[in-house]
């Protein structure tokens, strides 16, 4: 492989795959971010259920976390894509539509990443909540703070501080998981490099390019997470 050929292949000229790959990398980031944000809702609810819920809520949340952390993520994606599509097809048939109705891949992808990341985030939030010193909550109660105010002023700020390292891990995990969405035809970085590899017959070049782009994303987000962690600890006295 001579260097110029490989440069023009991945470059930004008319025949280059550079723009397509960069757009796809942006898609990967967008997918993962949407998945983690929606997953924060699932994870937050599950953590709340496990901490304060009744027996039924606790059991459901426990089952959710165990199931989606123990089952391969690929299987979860198949469940949502095929399960959701057959549901849609059934609904479509009810209204007289013919044939197979596919689920929109972006929505499926975000939902899959949200369900998976929610199961991991629940653990992070639960651990972070338990790390808040009991005195903080007692003090807020002693000041007669109403629940929502206590949540906003006392619990959430401290909870986030303890949760940042764990959330960083979840983010890196989900970023790499998003590559699995290529199996349902969603054009993110992995799928785009498959397309490039297929149409140019240069798989090595494209998968190396994908690997480098993933590395760049994980490096940048790793640096940002470290900065956030440092900033969150600026009010904490080091022993």
């Amino acid at each position: 492989m001579d260097l110029p050929a490989f440069v023009s292949l991945l470059g930004f000229s008319e025949k280059g795959w550079g723009p397509a790959l960069l757009t796809a990398a942006g898609m990967t980031v967008l997918l993962s971010a949407s998945g983690v944000v929606l997953g924060a809702l699932f994870g937050g609810l599950a953590a709340f259920a496990r901490l304060k819920g009744g027996r039924l809520a606790r059991g459901t949340a426990d089952a959710y976390c165990t199931l989606f952390r123990g089952v391969p993520d690929l299987l979860t994606i198949y469940l949502l894509y095929f399960g959701g599509s057959s549901l849609l097809t059934a609904v479509g048939r009810f209204f007289g539509a013919q044939g197979f109705v596919g689920l929109p891949t972006f929505a499926t992808g975000v939902l899959a990443l949200a369900i998976i990341s929610g199961a991991y985030q629940a653990e992070v939030y639960r651990g972070a909540f338990l790390a808040i010193p009991a005195g903080q909550i007692e003090a807020a109660r002693a000041l007669a703070m109403p629940g929502p105010l206590m949540l906003r002023r006392i619990i959430l700020p401290q909870l986030l501080r303890y949760a940042i390292p764990g959330l960083g891990n979840v983010w890196q995990l989900i970023l790499k998981d998003s590559a699995l969405l290529s199996v349902i035809g969603l054009v993110e970085l992995m799928r785009q490099s498959q397309i490039g590899a297929g149409s140019t017959r240069q798989p090595f070049v494209f998968y190396i390019a994908a690997a480098v782009l993933y590395l760049v994303i994980t490096f940048i987000s790793g640096a940002l997470i470290r900065r956030a962690e440092k900033r969150s600890l600026r009010g904490v006295r080091r022993a």
């Binding site: 790499k176 590559a179 699995l180 498959q194 998968y207 190396i208 690997a211 993933y214 994980t218």
Partner: peptide, 11 residues
């Protein structure tokens, strides 16, 4: 550690 396992398998 920084790239998806799927990329590694495909590579």
């Amino acid at each position: 550690r920084g790239t998806p396992l799927l990329v590694q398998i495909f590579l």
